[in-house]
């Protein structure tokens, strides 16, 4: 299939994906009751009156995991083309194609080991 047709297919899938919730919620609007009250609009907090804001502070470690994720996700972007071309590169460049990747991954694994040692990966 040519490229434009494939993109059109995906566009149609996304359009349908938006259409279904919109249609279902519109139909739901005609069917469901709507009796708003101030009690119903209170934020849920196990049945007691909520204290303070809902947007509370959360632990900084989430950012550390996000950083690790970005590093390794970018790594995979480099790994995929390498993996696709592996056989042809192996035929022309020899085992060097593997050594290069060992060096690249090795550097990142070093970073992971450092994070590990610094107890970033530990969740308390």
């Amino acid at each position: 299939m040519e490229l434009e047709a494939s993109f059109l297919t995906i566009a149609w899938f996304i359009a349908l994906g938006i259409l279904l919730p919109v249609a279902a919620l519109t139909v739901g609007k005609w069917l469901r009751p709507n009796k708003p009250s101030s009690r119903k609009a209170i934020t849920y907090e196990s049945g007691v009156d909520p204290t303070g804001e809902g947007w509370v502070q959360f632990h900084v470690r989430y950012y550390l995991f996000a950083l690790l994720f970005v590093i390794f996700d970018v790594e995979t972007i480099f790994l995929y083309p390498w993996a696709v071309a592996y056989d042809s590169l192996r035929a022309t460049l020899g085992v060097w194609v593997l050594y290069e990747m060992i060096i690249f991954i090795g550097l990142l694994v070093l970073g992971l080991a450092y994070a590990w040692k610094k107890k970033v990966l530990k969740w308390e």
Partner: peptide, 30 residues
């Protein structure tokens, strides 16, 4: 579920609150 009242909490960010289920569903189908 279709016949249940649709409650948006008073303190919620209304437009994002309504958008979120769609954002979660569309890629699942795509």
């Amino acid at each position: 579920l279709l016949l249940k009242e649709d409650i948006v909490p008073g303190k919620a960010d209304r437009s994002l609150f309504k958008l979120a289920p769609v954002i979660a569903f569309v890629p699942a189908f795509a």
